[in-house]
Design a protein around this nucleic acid. Structure first.
Lengths: 356, 356
DNA sequence: GCCCCTCTTTGGACCGGTCCAACGATTTCC
DNA sequence: GGAAATCGTTGGACCGGTCCAAAGAGGGGC
């Protein structure tokens, strides 16, 4: 289908059908001023809450605003103030419920400071985030938050040179002057692994994820196993962030000669895949196989799944990331910081003591 | 925690630490003009792709743009063009994966037309959408899309008077001059119910949702049952859109004297709750109880759940809603339209022939 | 050589706000 | 009573673009 470019479309609100629907323009600050019998400067003062205005005039202005249904024009304000009160959020993948939770935290904190969130999903817009960062630069957003690991690290570096930037919920890229806020993956992986070892499991597998986060969790898993003298019992199988990946990895694991009695999956979604695989191969969870996920998304909380999982506190990560951004807006020159939140273990129905 | 108002924060990008990090301003169109040795009007022409410009000058301008790293200021452009190239999306609940899918469709179509999406989640911002619509009005978005049933119908009515508006993925509110794009709930409920009847089920329950959508599906379910002479076998239990609601409704259904052999749930999430309840009460799905969900979200596609469900084509609904909005922007005076997409049935693992 | 026409280019008004220097009217102080 | 300080208000420059009327530059026809 050929797409009609927007340029060719009529301008909004120029209802030019016939005489009936007239072209009515939104009232401006000057209209309000005229109606209230004051200057536009005074109106501006009142609207910005100055206390240098006589009460009588203030009332007149507010009345005029009410009567005309006046609403300030954000574009004009941004242009003049040289600030948009908007932060751009580059989202890796809105389908991942953990990111949604993070977003929630972000939003709550930003909203408190009178900032709006402009969302863009890099997964939807094929452009891999390159165009999106550019768009945000054009919009002169006051700050930029990259949620999750983005494909376009280079574009982000460029943008970070001009706009206060924070990476949230990912460990990369580490760029100069960019804060990184995430959960402590090493600690989380340790919690999961020690939980399984504490239940008496010895042969434990890990379904690994990609990227820096995947590596951190895997290494921590291996380290903990080594600490307990179980280096030889540690199995790592590469998966990805999908259910399918978790499923296939688990099928491979369970077809091996020496089956693991427990699996620590990179995230909840992969863990659900593992659950399906176990069931399909006739194993009962947690009797025959213990499973631990990561993220404590609502998936893990579904009664029918009820996964034991590491809670990586997405909401908290979001709130802290927002705080970091606010600090960075206040002082753009401060050096980049890495903030890690402490994950906790949420024990549910997919882990049990090892048999025998 | 006291929140520092944004007003008190430094303006972005005025890096004023010491002499080292200087206050560098983003280049404007005038800087480009000067560098290229032409007027700003000419630069504007080049940037907007006019063919009335001599090639030599065009090259000079483009070179200057490149050298300075010039990026146009969106706020200034909006102010002057009286158009933002942005549509506001009021999202009922980002946690519902079906809406995410719809958003995807929306985004793809809007992006093709050079429009950006400004997302706001009414569920996150407690303000119930009232403030959000106002914010969108302030921003002078070119269009408004309400995704899902919003609590603030009145605010939406007001906004719709000023901004082209479309409701997507919900059937209410029906307002003058507002299009409604959704899947055909009556048809979807019919597909589900007839599927179950076709499998030989007679005593069939429906876990009903709230609002107009809930009512449409329930009525259609009842109508189909009546058509097959099963009016007396139709059971309706009120649920809500959560897993918990589906769980509880199912517990009630299965504790009745005459148990249904099949349940048609309002949506996938409620269906998962039903699945848990059945399992907990010792019933095997689909052997002892057939289940049908609605929406075909990725939940339904998880191997471990593998729900038979009605596919309500979120992506398609999103794309059509975007098209409606574009049409409405082009001609704001056109009367409101109701567009329904045809759902399909996705048969998976939770339905089977009735026993006996 | 002059006039008209087409093709490019330009100055400046405008979009709707913010912000600052300046101003008139009081009040305060000596 | 006059100078200084305070308070409330205002005009106008400015933010960075778009857009339009009009100016300039050539070219062709008579």
């Amino acid at each position: 289908m050929r797409v009609k470019p927007f340029d060719k479309l009529a301008r909004p609100m120029e209802r030019s059908r016939n005489g009936a629907t007239q072209t009515m323009r939104a009232p401006t600050i000057r209209d309000v001023a005229e109606r209230a019998g004051v200057s536009k400067s005074l109106v501006s003062l009142v609207l910005r809450g100055s206390d240098q205005v006589r009460d009588e005039k203030r009332q007149a202005v507010l009345a005029a605003v009410e009567e005309l249904g006046y609403r300030p024009n954000a574009a004009a304000r941004s242009l003049s103030e040289r600030r948009t009160r908007t932060v751009g959020v580059l989202l890796n993948d809105m389908r991942n419920p953990w990111f949604v939770e993070l977003l929630d935290g972000l939003n709550s904190r930003l909203h408190d400071s009178g900032l709006h969130m402009l969302l863009a999903d890099g997964h939807l817009n094929r452009r891999l985030g390159e165009d999106l960062t550019r768009t945000f630069v054009d919009l002169r957003v006051d700050g930029l938050i990259a949620v999750g690991t983005l494909p376009a690290a280079e574009a982000l570096r460029t943008a970070a040179g001009q706009i206060p930037t924070v990476v949230a919920g990912a460990r990369e890229p580490e760029l100069p002057g960019v804060d990184v806020v995430a959960n402590d993956d090493e600690r989380g992986a340790r919690l999961a692994t020690e939980h399984l070892i504490g239940l008496g499991h010895r042969r434990i597998a890990h379904i690994a994820g990609r990227g820096v986060v995947g590596e951190l969790r895997r290494r921590s898993f291996e380290a903990v196993m080594r600490e307990h003298g179980l280096a030889a019992e540690a199995v790592v199988e590469q998966g990805d962030l999908t259910e399918e990946g978790g499923y296939r990895a688990t099928v491979r694991l369970l077809s091996a000669r020496e089956r693991p009695t427990a699996v620590f999956a990179f995230n909840d979604i992969a863990c659900v895949g593992a659950l399906s695989a176990a069931e399909e191969l006739g194993l009962q969870v947690p009797r025959d196989l213990s499973l631990v996920g990561y993220d404590n998304t609502y998936l893990a909380r579904l009664r029918h799944l009820w996964l034991t999982t590491v809670d990586s506190a997405g909401h908290d990560v979001g709130r802290r990331a927002a705080q970091c951004l606010l600090d960075r807006i206040a002082d753009p020159a401060r050096p980049g910081e890495v903030v890690l939140t402490a994950p906790t273990l949420e024990v549910r129905g997919t882990t049990a003591p090892a048999r025998g």
